[in-house]
Amino acid sequence: MIEIKGLDFQYGEGDFHLDVPELSIARGEKVAFIGPSGSGKTTLIYLIAGVLQANKGSIRVDDIELSELPDKRRRVFRISQIGFVFQEFELIEYLSVRDNILLPYHLNPALTVSPDVPETVESLAVSMKLADKLKRFPKTLSQGEKQRVAICRALVAAPDLLIADEPTGNLDPATAGSILELLLETVELRRSTLLMVTHNHGLLKSFDRVIDVMDFASGRAP
């Protein structure tokens, strides 16, 4: 699924340096990235997603060489192949829950709204216990509900790869546990690959593999 070789990345003139000689992640694998703040966890997953571009090396996702793709195609690849879940949920305050879930379809014409998309939204909402909240706006939701909406948004285009950047970082332990459980169940069911950045070592037992990013980094990421 993901093949990284000789990856080298640096932010401008800063002292942070990420060097990944080789890393393979198989389809359906659940991988946790750990490391202290500024170690480059988020940088690494953004490189894998094509949000950032490496200075050197190769990143192949499903046999597609990201470093060779122009920006437009990288965005199309990202929106159709990758689902993002962020620590701060990053929901759009002026869109209803339904439209937040549909955001990838609103943003990029590469995703066309086929007749089964509304059905997908409904079934995702049911599975995430949001069925009665589709018309509501984010500010009326609890933290846990917001993160469940964010997970629905990440899954709506049925991506093969789900990237979660500390998705439980802003949640209380009980909610964090249930959200993680939901995420893992969904990934399992869809046979997607999950890359998750976390500080919570208590969650690590649920993952197939744990990677300490400190093994690849020197300096401090912004």
Partner: peptide, 16 residues
Amino acid sequence: KREMETMHKIGCSRLT
């Protein structure tokens, strides 16, 4: 800014 960054990360162009 964060909203715009989120849109970009998800797959929207800066021009959009």
